[in-house]
Write a protein that binds this DNA or RNA. Structure first.
Lengths: 170, 170
DNA sequence: TGTTGATTGACAGTATACTGACGATCAAGG
DNA sequence: CCTTGATCGTCAGTATACTGTCAATCAACA
C-alpha cells in the first residue's frame, strides 16, 4: 500500500471537517432560535441564563458561568442586559461583599414561562429535516461528545460543583 | 393516557437541547483548533477564508462570503486582518470598480501549507472521544442536517453559484 | 441618454466569546 | 494582626456574527 498522499488544500476538505460543520450548525441554530423567539427579544444565551437563575435562585455570577458553561467575562454583559430589561435583580450578599446574588423578577419569571413554547418550536425545527430515529442518534452522539470533551473548553460545565454553595448539592 | 405535562422549567432541559449542544460543541471545537494552531496565529475563520481564496484565486468578498457561508459584514474585518498579516492581497478589478479581487501572497500560501497538519490534528481531536463508527455516524448526520437546514441561516452556503463568475462553474 | 434598481464594499450598532489584567475582598497561616 | 494566596466582579482588547444603512458603481430599460 502506498503512503497516504497529502490532503489537497481545497475548500471541499473544509466542508467535511467537524469544526466547520459545528460552526455552521451553530449559526443555523441561533438563526432559528432568533426567528421563533423574535417577539420576546431574548437571545439563546440570555434564555439559558434566565433558566439557570430560575433553577438556582440566589446564584452568583461565577457559579452561573459554570452552570451554563459560559465565559465569566462575557457573562457580565449578559447579566447587565438582563438587568436593564428588568428580568433579573442583582443583590449584594451580606456575608461576602465580593458576590452579587442573582434572582428573577416577576417580569423575568413571566417571560420565561411565556417563551417556552417558542423555544420548543425552535429546538424542534433544528432537527426537523432528519428522520426521528436519526434525530435521536445525533442527539445521543452529541451529548456523549460534549460530555467527553468537557475539559477541552476554557469553561467546562460544572453543573454539580456550582450548586454546593447553595446548600443543595451533596 | 393523560395529556402531556408542561415541560419543567429547569436547566436540565437546556442541557439536552440541540441548540445548547451545538453551541457547546462549537466552543469546544474552536478551543481545540486554537490550541493546536497556536504557533500560527490563525483563527478557524481566517483559515477557512485562506483555503477558499486558495481554491478560488481572484474571488471577490461577496462571493467569498457565499463560499464559506459567512456574513459579508463580518468578512470585511476578517479580510482586513489577513491583509495586515500579509497573507492576502486586495486588488481592484479593472472591469468593475466596486469589486476588489482577493489573492494569496507567497506568505499566505506558505502558512496554509504549514498549518495543515495542525488543523488535521485539531479536527481529529474533536471527534477522538467517540468510537470510530460513531464518528462516521455523527459526521454523516451533521453533513445531512447542515445541508438540509442550509436556507435557515442568514448566509446560506452557495458553493456552486459563487464560482460562476470565475468561468469555472457550469 | 437618463433613470431605475441591484450590487459591492464599507460602516455603525449590538451580542456573544475569549485572553489577560485589575482592585476589592475573603480565607488561612504565622 | 498581618501577610499570602485565592476568589469575585469588572474592564480593556481582540475576534466572530448579525442587522441595518450608505455611497459608489453597474446593468437594464425606457
Amino acid at each position: 500500500m502506498p503512503s497516504k498522499p497529502a490532503p489537497p488544500i481545497t475548500i471541499d476538505a473544509v466542508y467535511a471537517a467537524p469544526g466547520y460543520l459545528f460552526r455552521r450548525m451553530q449559526q443555523i441554530a441561533v438563526s432559528i432560535f432568533m426567528e421563533e423567539c423574535r417577539a420576546f427579544d431574548l437571545t439563546p444565551v440570555q434564555y439559558a441564563a434566565l433558566i439557570a437563575i430560575h433553577t438556582h435562585p440566589g446564584i452568583d455570577a461565577t457559579r452561573l458561568s459554570a452552570v451554563i458553561a459560559f465565559d465569566r467575562s462575557t457573562l457580565g454583559s449578559v447579566i447587565e442586559r438582563l438587568e436593564v430589561k428588568g428580568y433579573i435583580e442583582r443583590k449584594p450578599a451580606p456575608e461576602d461583599k465580593r458576590i452579587k446574588l442573582l434572582h428573577l423578577t416577576k417580569s423575568g419569571a413571566a417571560i420565561l414561562r411565556d417563551i417556552i413554547p417558542a423555544v420548543e418550536r425552535a429546538q424542534a425545527r433544528m432537527l426537523e429535516p432528519l428522520k426521528p430515529a436519526d434525530r435521536k442518534a445525533l442527539m445521543g452522539l452529541l451529548v456523549q461528545l460534549v460530555d467527553l470533551n468537557n475539559e477541552a473548553s476554557r469553561v467546562p460545565l460544572r453543573a454539580e460543583d456550582a450548586l454546593e454553595h447553595l446548600g443543595k448539592g451533596g
